[in-house]
């Protein structure tokens, strides 16, 4: 495919909303997300020759966008010196959650208590309360279905960091969802 073969306006019509929604599974700032989507189109048009027809255009665009999101995080880290790994050096007092927290009720029956749409809305709300990078990791695992090695690479973390993040994500989501079911 060459630059001339592609209808640029159609590209925007067909993919911009999807790409924006994808970006927002990983980012909180909608203006930043919109900028990155626009950059994605610009980059895509400059390297159309590297697009292989075997892959879907949308998949290809998504991978360019994903790279931009990762680059954004990397830059943000050097700016604010708040790498994700710092999280693990901090106070460890909440690690022994089993000992201090008596969680008697389970959320296993949530889908019997809430309508599906309601459950999904509550889940989205709870996901928004996670640290932004954790959203990125959750999206990498559950939306993009990436292997742990790829996720660790993208986020500059070790496999044990990853298990801990997923574990803590689940605890936060569980507590958040529980608070929505028991009202």
């Amino acid at each position: 495919m060459t630059n001339q073969d592609i209808d640029r306006a159609q590209l925007v019509e067909d993919h911009s909303d999807y790409l924006l929604s994808f970006a927002m599974t990983k980012l909180r700032d909608i203006d930043l997300a919109k900028d990155l989507v626009q950059d994605t189109f610009v980059s895509a048009l400059t390297k159309l020759e590297s697009f292989e027809k075997r892959s879907k255009l949308r998949t290809w665009l998504t991978s360019i966008l994903n790279r931009k999101i990762i680059d954004h995080w990397r830059k943000a880290e050097t700016r604010y010196t708040d790498p994700i790994s710092n999280f693990f050096d901090q106070d460890d007092s909440d690690r022994h959650w089993l000992m201090e927290k008596k969680s008697d009720s389970s959320i296993a029956n949530i889908e019997q208590v809430l309508e599906e749409e309601e459950t999904m809305n509550e889940l989205k709300d709870c996901l928004d309360k996670l640290p932004e990078k954790w959203n990125g990791i959750v999206s990498s695992k559950y939306l993009e279905e990436k292997e742990s090695e790829q996720i660790c690479n993208d986020f500059d973390i070790t496999p044990s960091n990853l298990w801990v993040i997923i574990h803590r994500t689940k605890l936060l989501l569980r507590d958040c969802l529980k608070s929505k079911v028991v009202r």
């Binding site: 909303d17 999807y18 924006l20 929604s21 599974t25 919109k34 459950t119 889940l123 559950y142």
Partner: peptide, 16 residues
Amino acid sequence: TLLKKRFSHLGEEYKF
């Protein structure tokens, strides 16, 4: 299960 469901139908939740 919930997360898989949430991401199985990522529609156009945000729009330009």
